[in-house]
Amino acid sequence: MSRQQALPSWTNNIVPVDMDGAAVLLGISRRFLVDVIRQHKHYEPRGNRKVFYPEHINRLKVVISIHRSPKDALVQFVKARISGNMSDKADEVLSDCVSGSVYFVRCVDRIKIGFTDNWDGRFRILKTSCPYPVTVIALVPGSRHLELFLHRSFKDIRAHGEWFREQGDLRELIGLMVAANE
């Protein structure tokens, strides 16, 4: 009979987390985590559940950081919103004649999502027309079609015109794009 060795005492403090906990620790949505672990099996199966230990979280952080850019975060967002038979619609939104840039800027507690084919000129106008300092969150290659898709996606949190309150999915998207820039 072999005797099992007791685990070191420091292991008593390690508690695995479930999908929701892992998503929070990684700073991503549960939906995005599901997509990531489909390709990268960094978890421990427990029946029909998946649990994540610190080593799994650390590996997933690396996987996510290597494969992310602000554009990747935006692509992931668009594809998550357009699913099933409409995947060709997502490709259309994302690849529609990239003729400029879709930008995300912050002024106090509002986010502006816009399109421009002349970023330097547009940014100069934004800086002088806003009553408070403007911070660039992300600038990604895109089209008016992508800008319109984003405006429609966030219509429930529209403050005025192209300005939105930083809440819900928009806050999550911004977090992903900011993390990708770091």
Rank of each mutant, 00 (worst) to 15 (best):
D72R: 10
A73N: 05
A73T: 07
A73P: 03
A73H: 04
A73F: 00
L74I: 04
L74P: 02
L74V: 10
Q76L: 12
Q76D: 08
V78L: 06
V78E: 01
K79F: 02
K79M: 00
K79P: 04
K79V: 00
K79W: 04
A80W: 09
A80H: 10
R81T: 05
R81K: 05
R81W: 03
R81C: 05
I82L: 07
I82H: 07
S83I: 08
S83W: 12
G84E: 06
G84I: 00
G84T: 11
G84R: 10
N85Q: 14
M86N: 14
M86P: 15
M86F: 14
M86V: 15
M86Q: 14
S87F: 06
D88K: 13
D88I: 13
K89I: 13
K89T: 15
K89N: 13
K89D: 12
K89F: 13
K89R: 14
A90V: 05
A90S: 12
A90W: 05
A90C: 09
D91W: 06
D91G: 09
D91I: 09
D91M: 10
D91C: 04
E92P: 10
E92H: 13
E92Y: 14
E92S: 14
V93Q: 03
L94N: 04
L94S: 03
L94A: 04
L94E: 06
S95P: 12
S95Q: 15
D96W: 09
D96G: 09
C97R: 11
C97I: 08
C97D: 09
C97W: 10
C97Q: 15
V98A: 08
V98P: 07
V98T: 08
S99N: 13
S99T: 04
S99H: 15
S99F: 08
G100V: 00
G100I: 03
S101G: 07
S101F: 09
Y103S: 00
Y103I: 00
Y103L: 00
F104G: 01
F104H: 03
F104W: 04
V105D: 00
R106V: 02
R106L: 03
R106I: 00
R106T: 05
R106Y: 11
R106S: 01
C107E: 11
V108S: 11
V108C: 08
D109W: 06
D109Y: 07
R110S: 06
R110Y: 09
R110M: 04
I111M: 07
I111Q: 07
